[in-house]
């Protein structure tokens, strides 16, 4: 097992707490941090004709926006702190993709923040953090 923490990061305050926690832990363990950003996507969703034709362009735009607005700032701030950090951006189902990233990186654990809100939607369909806790092959730390 590599000494690496996967941090699920979407730019939210909860995700920022997860990053802070990971940084704190890595000071003692010396682990590297992998910032994982997943763009929700299903290959079975419906697109109109026009969306089909523009899909490749939109995908390029979405990735560029996610990189510049979400991933790059956090990577820069961690680098400035001297924390060893890498990043990964992917499309897919969020929990499934986080697990795939963790497996490929042979990570020590996944760290994810939770919003703490118990909405009816989350109760019915489950949250990303809850789903991860149930299906992840590596330890999951849920940061409140």
């Amino acid at each position: 097992m590599s000494n690496q923490y996967i941090v699920a990061y979407d730019g939210s305050p909860a995700a920022q707490r997860a990053v802070d926690y990971a940084v704190e832990r890595s000071k003692t363990s010396g682990a590297a941090i992998l910032i994982a950003h997943v763009l929700e996507w299903s290959p079975y969703s419906f697109l109109t004709q026009e969306e089909l034709a523009e899909r490749h362009m939109r995908r390029t735009e979405e990735l560029a926006r996610a990189k510049s607005a979400i991933v790059d700032p956090v990577v820069a701030s961690l680098t400035a702190k001297g924390v060893p950090v890498t990043s990964d951006m992917r499309y897919g189902n969020v929990p499934d993709t986080l697990v795939a990233i963790a497996q490929e990186a042979d990570a020590a654990q996944i760290i994810i923040g939770r919003t703490g809100q118990s909405t009816i939607v989350a109760r019915l369909f489950g949250s990303v953090a809850g789903t991860l806790a149930q299906m992840s092959p590596v330890p999951v730390t849920i940061v409140p």
Binding site: P43, Y44, S45, F46, T48, L52, E62, L63, R90, A100
Partner: peptide, 25 residues
């Protein structure tokens, strides 16, 4: 069903999506 789809291409138009859109026409 995506058995031959490279996961790195996720986010691009899948065979399924093209089929369903054409069918709806």
């Amino acid at each position: 069903s995506g058995k031959y789809s490279d996961p790195n291409d996720a986010g691009e138009v899948s065979h399924f999506q093209a089929l369903v859109t054409a069918l709806s026409g």
